[in-house]
Amino acid sequence: MADRKTPDRPQPPARPQTPNRGGWLSRFAPGVRKIVGRRDTPDNLWVKDPDTGEMLYRSELETSLWVTPSGRHMRINAPTRLRFTFDDGEYEPIDTPEVPEDPLNFSDGKPYRERLAAARKASGRRDTMAIGYGEVGGSPAVVIVQDFTFMGGSLGMAAGEAFIAAAEAAIERKVPLVCYTAAGGARMQEGALSLMQMARTTLAIQDLKAQRLPFIVVLTDPTTGGVTASYAMLGDVHLAEPGALIGFAGPRVIEATIREKLPPGFQRAEYLQEKGMVDRVVPRADLPRVLGQILSMLMDGRKAA
């Protein structure tokens, strides 16, 4: 008998391969990804406490005026200082004068103009000083802030001209001048022109004193070099933030020069208060209130122009 051959059964067509376009959520609802989107975590969401190494939530630091749970008063920029100093954060900005850029055509491996451009891009500022006019604890005042984020708050021609402009604005309005200092010293890229600002700012303070207008200094971390050797130590009252480094030369330079170990806390605000160079160490949150009380007392009822 001949073998029977079973006829071949027709095979179902092959199912086309669906490319893998993501997780199950995108396959279940193709439009979900577009609706929900992807949320990137900001790089600056957390800030490291310099003392404890603890990671701190940025928004909480901003609420506490950048004072950490360990008590460290972190450095803050000029706009932030102006906002928290003036009543309700409201003030009139005062323009800072323009000065010649790179008058010495200086280069230290990188042209000074390039360093200025990089600092402006990083900080969003023209230079280190910012000036505002408003009320502090109900007392009118001109406030000038030195911003350490711009080239270490270094004292150059722009900073000197800004200080003089702030003093002139205070004299014109017949109000006190408050200065927040923060600097690593003179701006070496401007050579002797930078050192001249020490004398020029001193003369501006003498003009304030001739008009019997108070000059209040708030020393913040760090205040060093030519700034300490000039207007930072010429105030009628000197306040300081806790833990601020205040001095002319750095501790390591002094130790290497005198070849002796410095006392604990040397050049810190608390040590200088103990030695009489600082009148009072004031926590950041209390500064507007304390400044307002001092300004009101020193002005003794005199009105602003």
Rank of each mutant, 00 (worst) to 15 (best):
M55W: 15
G37L: 00
S296A: 14
R280K: 13
L65D: 14
T202Q: 15
P100W: 03
A141M: 01
A130W: 02
D279A: 07
S59V: 10
Q189F: 07
M129K: 07
G31W: 06
A256E: 08
R83Y: 03
A117F: 03
R115Q: 13
M297K: 13
L203C: 09
P10Q: 15
H73Y: 03
E90W: 06
T257K: 13
D88W: 01
L45S: 04
P263Y: 12
F148N: 04
L203I: 12
M55Q: 14
P111N: 07
M74W: 07
V237G: 00
Y112K: 05
P103R: 08
A305P: 11
R39P: 01
R75A: 11
R302M: 08
V99G: 11
A204Y: 01
G292K: 07
L291D: 03
Q17N: 11
E62I: 04
D127V: 05
A165R: 15
P16S: 11
R4H: 14
K48I: 09
M1W: 12
E60A: 14
S64L: 08
K110F: 04
S296C: 11
G137C: 09
S154A: 13
T96L: 00
A29H: 09
R115W: 12
T228V: 02
D279Y: 10
S70T: 14
F148C: 04
